[in-house]
Design a protein around this nucleic acid. Sequence first.
DNA 1: CTGAAAGCGCTAACAC
DNA 2: GTGTTAGCGCTTTCAG
Lengths: 356, 356
Amino acid sequence: MNKKQVTLKDVARLAGVSTATVTRVLRNESLVTEKTRKRVEQAIQQTGYRINIVAQGLRARQTKTIGHILQGTAPNPFFIGVALGAEQEALYHGWSILAFNVQHDPERERSGVETFIQRRVDAILFTTPLCEENVRIALEAGLMVIQVERPTALSTPTVTADNYAGTVEAIEHLITLGHRRIAYLGEIPPGPAERKAQPYRNRIEHERFAGYCDTLAHHQIPLDIELIILDRFYTSADNGLSAGYHAMQKLLRSGKRPDAVFATSDIIAAGVLQALYAVHLSIPEDISVVGFDNTYSPYLSPPLTTVEQPMEQMGRAAVQMVIRHFQQHQQEEPTHIRLTTRLVVRGSTGPRKRLS
Amino acid sequence: MNKKQVTLKDVARLAGVSTATVTRVLRNESLVTEKTRKRVEQAIQQTGYRINIVAQGLRARQTKTIGHILQGTAPNPFFIGVALGAEQEALYHGWSILAFNVQHDPERERSGVETFIQRRVDAILFTTPLCEENVRIALEAGLMVIQVERPTALSTPTVTADNYAGTVEAIEHLITLGHRRIAYLGEIPPGPAERKAQPYRNRIEHERFAGYCDTLAHHQIPLDIELIILDRFYTSADNGLSAGYHAMQKLLRSGKRPDAVFATSDIIAAGVLQALYAVHLSIPEDISVVGFDNTYSPYLSPPLTTVEQPMEQMGRAAVQMVIRHFQQHQQEEPTHIRLTTRLVVRGSTGPRKRLS
DNA sequence: CTGAAAGCGCTAACAC
DNA sequence: GTGTTAGCGCTTTCAG
């Protein structure tokens, strides 16, 4: 281990040229004779030289590294999807990603930002910033910042998904199948005041709930508060699995069983399926279930119909913004990318077969 | 963006000392007067100085960065678990992890190794090396290498799990519940020749299958080849989900339904549950199911009994080896860490209630 | 077309 | 105790 590293100087010496010339060959610059180039390339081969990106980074004051702050890859695969997309895209451009799972802890988010600054990343992706202050710190350190999924009010480029359209599509699907009593299990949407204060922050909850309400209204189906269960699903210890279970139990106890359930994450939906399994109800014969995300859905019994979030694309788009920013050196206005969701129909939804 | 970075020199100037003194304060060395230290600390505060780890790394020829090559976090959460553990442990010591998902592609694994070398990581973790050649390249570049889960024959430190004991525990559990006809769904184990050639490589498959056979033998239950389905589950497109489904269908068609099914991953088990759901069999009343990994298991219906792999611990252990190696400078023999699994009993296993 | 040399930001050896 | 300085490996003027 730790044999002596081959440096540019070694290559130069072997090729009988200066280090400047070696650099020129490496960077494919034109002002080198074919003969010298050959000689240098041979020397590179012989020595097994590998460029030192650390030294390059120091010199260029650019590390081609992006820091990615995630709320936690485990157990919610949503974040994995985004991370994977970001990684692939970065790779493609010769960049790297430094990831940091903060597991909903603002302290850790803070220390992630600090680490990234010290490591001189060129940009930070927040896949859901927890704390506006931490975004500000990154910005003040002169870093490019991209906010993904739930941006704060700070002005940076953002990448979000169109949750409204996705929800509408799901509810329409259920209505088309003949369902009328459609339950909604989701995070508490923001009130009007909250929405004013943080227009983007809680947009997801607002859009999902609004999509539900609007679609029912559009079909003259009255809202039934007994069918609406709003809770803090996402931040509970198991990301809403047991909360989904209990919510479904509550719906079953209430007497008038719903025709269908729309849950705003696959994890919540997984809890719903468990509750239905426990009382031997059949899906979709007795009740249809729709999830959101397309993470756990393929693995459940039956495979779950769900609104797919474009996770990988979200990661890719964020990284593309970074790369583009560093390619064209002029300052441009923060871009806001909004990607579309897609309904994936599987076995958990169908026409009602039996009467309740 | 890109305001001028504050450097040591700036701090030194403001504090009216030399850069060496600032370094001494930063590294908490003793040979500084309390007064100077105060002054320097104030200057650091005022300027908002943050150490430049890139420059540090160049100088020290140590980046405090670990490259982590994974087969793919999506969709198998096993890798996420390992990655998360590695990340946490690294963080704790002020190190960072650069991750690279290679998705079972040896080319990508190769390019991951090259990237890591160029970025001058201090060590590479392979969570399942794909290709021995790539491990060798890393070793030849003078990097510390740790092989996790399925080491090649190359001599490096390794981290593995005791798959034999885990399997024995699971089968014992099923036998205790009164089951006799226990099916085995798993990867094809190596033949004796293969085992000789690559003693560690296919150890997992061998251990799991041997654990199954030995436990049955121990209870005088004869092996029934109709109950054993060996296949290339792990490398199929969906990690064995549909293969698990079809394997279960085949078992059901064969007439003599098994009392219980042992699947060597939660994903395969998820496919098994789907097949059972489709024919309206009840779990565990009609048949018990056990998985492996403890990844998807909590989300399935019913929640799956499974053999938990110590994923996070595996990641942590690997990183700890790296840190320890760089703390104590002497060369030591490669360590081999073997962690234990744990049976997590949930709702998918129970005494047989009905007769088939 | 090629080379010499300065400097990116930090640290450690050596001098005072 | 504190300062001076060389140098980690690379790139980029500026000369030649």
